[in-house]
């Protein structure tokens, strides 16, 4: 946020970034420290596994929070909330990535915590579209195993060296990767969001005659 209080420095978090830089060199692509709040680091795709190892061994971030991914493509369906009668607003297809930047549509990100230092870090890595895979973390953090299976299912991102990359949530014959932005929620397309469906013309909007006619017809029956 731009109106955050005047940035003091944050030694614990700066140190995290420093150590990562010294261990990984220029494979740390970008970083962002919000003093007193949080820290984001983006590493090169091929340094993903190495990063995990540095975090665990050199920085003692032993506690595994989560591993996930994000699809930065703006949803081609908007929020599927527009009433079917309105003109759909033109949707942009520009990919705008978040903190610590990014070049690709898909990114994986993970968060680990150092319990003795009481500090957490979010690391990100780009996943190129041509080769949708990164190295696995499951040998470094055992908990990553299931998270990677989830990501594989939800985004179709592969994890090289993962022991058992099978479906975790969805039935085996499910097609598609639901969390990708271009996966449509069919129910929403068949039947738009009920909250804004009330688009029937108001009574005074001109078809009174018709309405009266209907009423008369009903009365006749």
């Amino acid at each position: 946020m731009s109106d955050a209080p005047a940035p003091e420095t944050d030694e614990r978090r700066d140190r995290l970034v420093e150590v990562l830089r010294s261990e990984l060199g220029d494979r740390v692509v970008d970083s962002l420290v919000k003093p007193g709040d949080d820290v984001w680091v983006r590493v090169a795709t091929d340094a993903w596994q190495e990063t995990g190892r540095v975090l665990r061994d050199a920085l003692r971030c032993n506690f595994f929070d989560f591993l996930s991914a994000i699809d930065w493509l703006p949803s081609p369906f908007g929020k599927s909330e527009d009433s079917p009668l309105d003109q759909r607003p033109a949707l942009s297809t520009d990919i705008v990535t978040g903190y610590a930047g990014g070049e690709t549509r898909f990114q994986v990100f993970a968060r680990v915590t150092s319990l003795p230092e009481r500090v957490s870090i979010t690391v990100k890595a780009d996943v190129p579209l041509e080769d949708l895979a990164v190295d696995t973390w499951s040998a470094i953090y055992s908990g990553a195993n299931w998270h990677e299976r989830e990501i594989h299912e939800m985004y179709g991102i592969g994890f090289r060296g993962h022991p058992y990359l099978a479906h975790i949530y969805l039935p085996g014959d499910f097609e598609g990767h639901p969390l990708r932005k271009d996966f449509p929620l069919l129910a929403r397309h068949v039947k738009p969001w009920p909250g804004i469906v009330d688009v029937e013309p108001m009574p005074d909007e001109g078809d009174d005659a018709e309405a009266e006619g209907d009423a008369a017809a009903e009365g006749a029956e």
């Binding site: 949803s75 929020k79 599927s80 909330e81 939800m154 479906h167 975790i168 949530y169 969805l170 039935p171 639901p178 969390l179 932005k181 996966f183 929620l185 929403r188 969001w193």
Partner: peptide
């Protein structure tokens, strides 16, 4: 074996 209660939260929250 999980997923018998998977309701797709993360996707639903996007809309």
């Amino acid at each position: 074996v999980m997923g018998y209660m998977h309701r797709g939260y993360e996707k639903l929250l996007e809309v």
